[in-house]
Write a protein that binds this DNA or RNA. Structure first.
Lengths: 222, 222
DNA sequence: TGAGCCATATTGCCGCAACATTACGGAAAG
DNA sequence: CTTTCCGTAATGTTGCGGCAATATGGCTCA
C-alpha cells in the first residue's frame, strides 16, 4: 500500500508519516499542488490525501485533473474548514472523504483503511495481459492458470507495468514505484528485479521488453 | 464471541462492557455512527449493539448500510424511545431486537445470547477448509474428526483466517481481530499465537503460510 | 564492417530484517 | 493453591533484496 500525502505543514506531515508507516503504509510526501500532479502521473499510489489549503491554491481545484490522470483514485481532503457546507462542497468536487482539522491521526488511518477495503468489496479488479493476470486488489498474480509467488518489490514493479501494459514505462517511474521518491537507489537493483520477474512470468505469453535508454514495456507476445 | 457496542454515554458503556466481559464476550466500543461503520467493515463482530441516539444521528439510518457491508449481522438497538410505535419502526428498519432504556444489563446479555443461538444464517454456519472445520457460531473447531482445544485469542485469529481462507490476511487485520482496535500491541505476541495455532491444527491438511511483509494465509495443503 | 563502448542481463553472495519457536513469569480464574 | 492463558524476550531460522562481477547485445563511429 502506497499513498500520496500533499501537505505543506511540516510538523503535521511528519506526524502523519510516522503514524502511517507504523501501519505499514508507504507514504510519498509533497508540499504543493504542482508536485502532487506530477506524483499522480506516476500512477503508483492507491490513495491521495490532500490538505485543502496549499501554498499554490485550493486543492479542490485540482481534483478533476487528478481524476483525469487516474480515474478512480480515492481522494481524502484534509481541511481546517469543517463547516458542513464546505464538507459537501468537497465531496461534490469528487473527494471520497473529507476530514476536518483538528483530527485524531488514528482516524485518518481508519479512513484510509476503509477506502482501501472499498474497491476490494465492490469487485476485485484484475488486469489481464496475455496469459498473465494481475489482481489490483491484493497484488496477487497468475500466469497460465498457476498462481505466482511474488515478493514485495516484484509486486510493486509488476503492478505499474501491468497498469500501463503496451506502453513504455520509464525507468525512473519504475524506480519511484518500487522505492520511494526519496530513497536513492544505487547500482542495478531494479534490473535485477526485472530479471527475476521475467523468469517468473516467462511461461506465459507475456514479455517484458527493455527499451534501451528509456525503460521497460510489458506486452503480450504476438 | 466479539461484539460491537456503539454508545456515546460513557458511564453506560463502561457498565455494559464490564458486564459483558464477565460473560466472556469481547467488546469493541465506539461512540459514533461513522466509527461504527468502519468497525463493521472489519467483519470481526458477531453482533452489533447500537444506541439509537448518537452524536452524529439516529442509528436506524445506518442499519441498511451495515447490512450492505455484512449481510445477516444481528443488530440490537438500545433506545430511550420505548413506545411501541418506535419499537416497530426500529424492527422494520432491520434491527433484530429493540431494547428500551432503562433496562437491566442482564437482559441485554440474555438477548445477545438469544440472537447467537438463533438458527440464523451466519450464526451456526461452519466453514471447512481441508480437514479443519470451524464453527462460526460458538468458535469451536475440529481437525481430522478430533475437537480442538483452542484458547480465546486462538479462536479469534483462526476465525478471521478461516473466513478469508485462501486469501492473504494482513498482519494488521489479524491484530485488530485478536486485540481491540485501541490496544496497542508490542513485541511478537501475534506470531506466538500463530505458532501455537499451527501446532494445534497441523495434524490436518491445512497450513498457515506466512507472507513475508504482509501477513498470513490459511489454505488446504495441495 | 569491425572495434569499442555502454546499456542491459544474469547470477551468486551475503547482510539483515522478518518470522518461528520455545521458555519463562505474571496474572487471573477456579 | 493450582492451573491456564498469554505477553514478553531470547534464540534460531529463513529468505528478501541490495550489490557487484561477469556476460551479452545493440549502437556508434571510424
Amino acid at each position: 500500500m502506497r499513498i500520496l500525502l500533499v501537505e505543506d505543514e511540516v510538523d503535521l506531515a511528519k506526524a502523519l508519516i510516522s503514524a502511517l508507516e507504523r501501519h505499514d503504509i508507504l507514504v510519498d510526501h509533497v508540499t504543493t499542488l504542482e508536485m502532487a500532479l506530477e506524483a499522480v502521473e506516476s500512477g503508483v499510489h492507491s490513495i491521495a490525501v490532500l490538505d485543502r489549503k496549499l501554498p499554490d491554491g485550493d486543492s479542490l481545484t485540482i481534483i478533476p485533473r487528478i481524476r483525469k490522470i487516474q480515474t478512480g483514485l480515492p481522494i481524502i481532503v484534509l481541511s481546517a474548514l469543517g463547516a458542513p457546507e464546505q464538507r459537501i462542497e468537497g465531496l461534490e468536487t469528487g473527494a471520497d472523504d473529507y476530514l476536518a482539522k483538528p483530527f485524531v491521526v488514528d482516524e485518518l488511518v481508519a479512513r484510509i483503511r476503509a477506502l482501501m477495503r472499498r474497491p476490494a468489496m465492490i469487485a476485485d479488479m484484475a488486469v489481464t495481459v496475455g496469459q498473465l493476470t494481475f489482481n489490483l486488489g491484493d497484488g496477487s498474480a497468475m500466469a497460465g492458470g498457476e498462481p505466482l509467488t511474488l515478493t514485495r518489490r516484484e509486486v510493486l514493479a509488476l503492478e505499474v507495468l501491468v497498469k500501463r501494459a503496451g506502453r513504455t514505462v520509464a525507468r525512473s517511474v519504475l524506480e519511484e514505484a518500487v522505492y520511494g521518491f526519496d530513497d536513492e537507489i544505487a547500482s542495478n537493483t531494479l534490473d535485477a528485479h526485472i530479471s527475476r520477474l521475467r523468469r517468473k512470468i516467462a511461461p506465459g505469453q507475456v514479455e517484458i521488453h527493455s527499451i534501451r535508454g528509456i525503460g521497460y514495456l510489458l506486452k503480450a507476445t504476438a
